[in-house]
Design a protein around this nucleic acid. Structure first.
Lengths: 229, 229
DNA sequence: AAATAAACCTGACAAATATCATAGTTTCTG
DNA sequence: CAGAAACTATGATATTTGTCAGGTTTATTT
């Protein structure tokens, strides 16, 4: 098993890269690698987390249940991203649920190694801070989008986001396959409205579909739509 | 001028309380206290900030301009809160504008004292991290509210928030006076819709008004509405 | 105090979106 | 492979919300 954090490339993408050799060794010794099947939960809203989860492979949706029983997906976490950090740092129960969108490999890192390094290694603390600052900025952007853009614009934006961040296969279909319901939950709309708009985009030639697979066929037009033309 | 940070009570409410005496002395020596008149901007979206602003008195709205020309108020900052932290930490231009809602007193703290302490004093870094983690959680909540609650619910919630966080005067009017437009911008709706719903709440006896002043008269009913009854 | 501007309010209408109902498709499972 | 379950699709309709247009009141300035 090639599971020494010191050798793990993934870590270059997250705040763990600010850890020194010794600290990494500790993490490697205490961490637990686990597989999560599509649809399974890694943690649930309200759980008290005893550590953070580092995504090695696959994608997880981070969502929050609203009063009316709908899930709002706040964020997608993929390779290299760390989940549960916020909760561990503020020592509160987590405000989000994490569910695997496809089969995943994640490493569980007990909070002790994190909190200890946080106190001992200022560079690590600052690195974590930077990541959190970035997340916060993104969250602000989402708030503005949610309240100021139409559902159609938000759906267009979501597809461009998926294309940019997860890429497409040889035939031009998005690599990350989300159900219509998931897309609706990212965008914050009813599943039916989401499906309707996808159909409309298909008719207009902005998108193509094949089963659950969806592909962007006219990036420019989608972008125009997002910008308000 | 009683402006030594060491003696400033305000600091108990924010991450500066994790600074030691020496560090505070440095901050006190480099900081600049300034008054800001109602309606004036402290900084604008896209500005490069050379420090953070600590609110001593008054309230500021932190907002972001959307593509269609509307301001979305993301946050209100009052006594003890620090503005611009995110931007200074990530060394990016700020994503928000700060405008005074009423007359304010703020202290400008050059970023050097902040970044230096961040590297030197892990407790301070962790304290900042905690605050940021909290902000992030709140932002997640806002996202869910925006997408899952109706305008009516969001307005009801806004008044309960203002009541809880800024209190009311002897006659039961909210201490913090916001224009209908500002409320609309907090909630993410059209000013007319906001006014209409306030009128409705008044007719139903949930609110009372007197000029610009607004008071909550039936907390329970507002709460029920927010919860979805 | 008159003039002007800014904020507030209301009605009528249009557009966006949700909801309900129903049916077709795909995917999963025994 | 059959049947069930989950997902996708579309129509009809109701609800919510935004927009435009015109008022009134309140605040500010001269």
């Amino acid at each position: 098993m090639e599971s020494r954090c010191e050798n793990c490339i993934i870590r270059q993408f997250n705040s763990l890269r600010a850890m020194n050799k010794e600290e990494l060794k500790k993490v490697a010794d205490s961490k637990i690698t686990m597989s999560v099947k599509k649809g399974e939960a890694i943690f649930k809203e309200g759980d008290k987390l005893d550590g953070v989860f580092c995504v090695r492979d696959g994608v997880s949706k981070l969502s929050k249940l609203s009063a009316n029983g709908k899930d709002q997906i706040v964020k997608l976490a993929s390779k290299g991203q760390i989940m549960g950090q916020r909760s561990v740092i503020s020592e509160e129960t987590t405000n989000l649920s994490a569910v695997a969108v496809n089969d995943m490999q994640v490493c569980f890192i007990p909070k002790e190694s994190i909190t200890h390094t946080l106190h001992a290694n200022p560079n690590f603390a600052i690195e974590v801070l930077r990541h959190m600052a970035h997340d916060l900025k993104e969250a602000d952007d989402v708030i503005v989008n949610m309240s100021q853009k139409t559902v159609k614009q938000r759906i267009a934006e979501a597809f461009l986001y998926l294309q940019k961040n997860y890429g497409e296969d040889q035939e031009g279909f998005l690599t990350l396959i989300l159900s219509r319901e998931d897309i609706a939950n990212v965008v914050g709309t009813a599943t039916e409205s989401c499906i309707r708009i996808i159909s409309e985009f298909k008719k207009k030639g902005f998108l193509k579909t094949s089963g659950k697979k969806i592909g962007v066929t006219n990036q420019k037009k989608l972008l125009d739509l997002v910008e308000g033309f």
